[in-house]
Design a protein around this nucleic acid. Sequence first.
DNA 1: GTGAAAGCGCTAACAC
DNA 2: GTGTTAGCGCTTTCAC
Lengths: 355, 355
Amino acid sequence: MTTRKDIAQKAGVSVSVVSRALNNSGYVEASKKERILRIAEELGYHPNPVAVSLMTQRTKQILFYCREIRNAFNLELYEGMVKAAKEQDYLVMFHGSLDFKSIRSTMVDGIIFPSEAAAEIYQNMVGKIYRLPAVSAAFGNTFYYPKGMPMIECDCWKGMELIFQYLRERGHHRIALVMPYDISHEEIRIFAWKDQIQYELKKDEIDTYYLGISKKSLPGDKRVLEFGEEREEGDPYIAENFWGKGRLAAHIFQERRLDATAVICFNDEMAMGFLQEIQKLGYRVPENLSIVSFDGTFVRRYGNPILTSLSLQPEKIGEKCVEILLKEINKEPFKYKYKLTPRLLEGESVQKIKR
Amino acid sequence: MTTRKDIAQKAGVSVSVVSRALNNSGYVEASKKERILRIAEELGYHPNPVAVSLMTQRTKQILFYCREIRNAFNLELYEGMVKAAKEQDYLVMFHGSLDFKSIRSTMVDGIIFPSEAAAEIYQNMVGKIYRLPAVSAAFGNTFYYPKGMPMIECDCWKGMELIFQYLRERGHHRIALVMPYDISHEEIRIFAWKDQIQYELKKDEIDTYYLGISKKSLPGDKRVLEFGEEREEGDPYIAENFWGKGRLAAHIFQERRLDATAVICFNDEMAMGFLQEIQKLGYRVPENLSIVSFDGTFVRRYGNPILTSLSLQPEKIGEKCVEILLKEINKEPFKYKYKLTPRLLEGESVQKIKR
DNA sequence: GTGAAAGCGCTAACAC
DNA sequence: GTGTTAGCGCTTTCAC
């Protein structure tokens, strides 16, 4: 690799002159400058980014600390980040198999978390001693609340309101909720659903219409697997991911003989599993049953019918995360809370029903 | 940030002693070592990765140069890379919005390309002057052939043979091919299909059963968009991506009134679009029409019915890419060609038919 | 205008 | 065993 020293030697000047010529800073005799530039070109010179980083104390890299790369929501978050980062010559690295400790031996200027939970765990483990600028995407989780980290939030509460409004306008009143968690989980979607559904369901019905796919929600049900848990051979429809949990939810829905006319799913992946399996069980979507999900990612298109989904604006969240993180890195002022408004994306999975 | 200097000062020794103590190299008096380690712990010391990189001339980072992050195949390639890289403490960066020139200001020890085409373009543009270790995933493309770069190939020819064998065993003989390219494109899947289908179709039928979704294949058809091209408002079923092209292919299939009993799709995303749209057009899958696609990624599960797909083993390719790239980086011996064998993943989209 | 020199945080050869 | 020194590739200050 050619260095500035090589160029200096060939041009018969010192390294500092080369540096000034190349960086367009300070005084350099015009003819010399030209010669230096030419030689640099000839030698195919490019500055060593590591040396520049050591000098400037900036790596121009950001880490997106995220485990689930197959989750379309995370992908779209990432796309937003890349877009915003590019404008300021930053690169975003996508990584989640890193343990928190080794983040410190990663060449980054800052770090982005995909959720309050990840952010807080990090904060407690290393954030206190290692003060790397960090921001987090957020969804109104009330349990985890990392202190001193800016949060970019999409308003899930508002989102649930929008979904209910949309469904009610189309005649739906008995509306079930499909979640990968237990009903007492500190999740804003659950609170918001309960808040809405109290007008339509009796108190003792709520538990029935809540389809929580977790061990706690379905005690003793062998079909439930936790995230990442190995599936036993031969089981036809369950899996340890959102899609598999969605499929299982369809079976539970049938087993409970629910008379719900609409189902709201935690995210698009779960909805895909639910949709597929409920159709296999003989339901027609949207004729017998309407489905709406959260997220609004591109996978909603893969459904047949295409899913109606509430966009949590992942790309915008991603962009905002980078914007704020870079402010933090550059010691510019920023706020600790940003709130984005969700938007309903109409698909084909909801039908108007007669009362 | 604490440095070794800080520790040295506090411990009353020189930086080199600290270095030796921390790196467990050379002689350090036991009691001093202990003290140094304790102070490092207290101060929350971690070595500056940039400085280490400058010193060792290794960034411990690899770049996966890839544009399409929404493509499940690329995602699974990436997952394989991450897995293999982790074992050797390497990080993989996912990036494709970088122009080739700026790769040079990225802190990486090597670079991985997702296809022969990308690899060759890079090779011609910067690879000749900038000799960064590089490898590429490959699919038997015969047009692009980057010299001097190791290629990890999954055998698409063999894959097509497997698909035909599978389909023939189930009574299929009139088999169409859905591709995002023109029939004269240098693509091994097209060659292999022609090679197989010559036994079952007459020469002048071949063009009809080839469903190429490209401007060249469908001259004057306004519904065709090139990759990345903006879609005009209001068009219901086309798009500038694999999924949209798959949907359009379904319409072409119907318009040509093809009597094919099976369709082979370029990849899972195209198959998802084709599947969805062909069902909307009234075909029943697999009862009226069977579908097989290439790739074998997780999105095949989102189909209803679940797609039967030929796995090109993306994770394994990704792992192998990293394995070879690291050999290249570490100047260990390696071969220039590695070939993986594809595997058919059965789904629900193929049915046995009576002759 | 220019070049020597110091320094970013770390390593490693070498003298003591 | 330990400290001094030079150097990785670059920037920047400061004499000249």
